[in-house]
């Protein structure tokens, strides 16, 4: 393992006691950070230090710490999940930073994602978008044999590409319009590429977009910042598919 020297850092962290309060940045010095630490482990160390000093720890969301659950995510120096491509905050390591760096840490900023505390935001709007149609209506126990539904391998691969979305919200955080189009598109595109999604495809596109808008997310202006920030590397081609699905549904749905 290559030897790295330890880092001394200044962290500028957004502190906000609860949704109703005004937040502010606070600076913390952190010494002797190992480059082998993950970014969240660095925050753990900060919190241990704060506890010793009698200050309440910084709240941040995290769970699996292996890049799949989608719980973690902060904006690091203006970039959601930090500087690495295809990487969640928990998989970002401190070797990507330099000794003496100032690291500004902010929560996802979006009206639809109100701050819960410090770096924690409420992403339940995503659940409501899925509730609007991100499913196949099949009752438990009603399903035919798995091989009764044939899915060509490339279609399965395309659906899997979209279904890989971890629902972290980095797309919203990165988008200048705080649009959740990549998230919504990932689900619409996943089901639009499979025969199972066929019966409900029109309603799905219409209703999921209606909910997306009601939740207060912005519109897509094709800057593709979402794709660049997405830790699951979901492609914007899924947004195009969503646009197709939507316009087809808009023009041909029976209601």
């Amino acid at each position: 393992m290559p030897a790295h020297k330890q880092l001394n850092l200044t962290l500028r962290v957004w502190r906000q006691p609860d949704a109703g309060s005004r937040g502010e940045f606070r600076d913390y010095k952190l010494y002797s950070v190992s480059p082998e630490m993950s970014f969240l482990e660095m925050l753990d160390v900060l919190n241990e230090q704060l506890l010793e000093e009698g200050e309440e720890p910084v709240a941040f969301d995290h769970d699996c710490r292996e890049g799949i659950c989608g719980t973690c995510g902060v904006v690091i120096n203006g970039q959601p999940h930090g500087p690495m491509q295809g990487t969640t905050t928990c998989q970002l390591h401190m070797r990507n930073f330099e000794d003496g760096d100032l690291i500004v840490i902010e929560p996802w900023r979006a009206s639809a994602f109100p701050v819960v505390r410090d770096l924690v935001v409420n992403r339940s709007a995503f659940d409501r978008i899925i509730q609007a149609g991100g499913y196949v209506s099949v009752r438990t126990g009603q399903a035919p044999d798995g091989n009764a539904i044939l899915v060509p391998s490339p279609d399965q691969a395309g659906a899997m590409d979209a279904a890989a979305c971890i629902g972290c919200g980095a797309c919203v955080a990165a988008c200048k319009n705080a649009s959740a189009m990549l998230f919504t598109a990932a689900k619409v595109s996943h089901l639009a590429q499979l025969p199972q999604g066929e019966p409900e495809r029109k309603q799905r596109a219409l209703q999921m977009i209606a909910t997306h808008d009601e939740e207060g997310f912005g519109a897509c202006t094709n800057t593709y910042e979402c794709e660049a920030a997405c830790p699951a590397e979901i492609s914007v081609s899924h947004i195009a598919r969503l646009n197709r699905e939507y316009s087809k549904a808009m023009l041909t749905a029976r209601q």
């Binding site: 196949v136 399903a143 659906a159 996943h190 499979l194």
Partner: peptide
């Protein structure tokens, strides 16, 4: 039954070229 149920829900299980699981 679990596999059947998940397939019907749209879980993108890996497929052979002929479209079978």
């Amino acid at each position: 039954n679990i596999i059947d149920q998940c397939v019907a829900q749209g879980v993108p299980f890996a497929r052979e070229y002929g479209g079978t699981l």
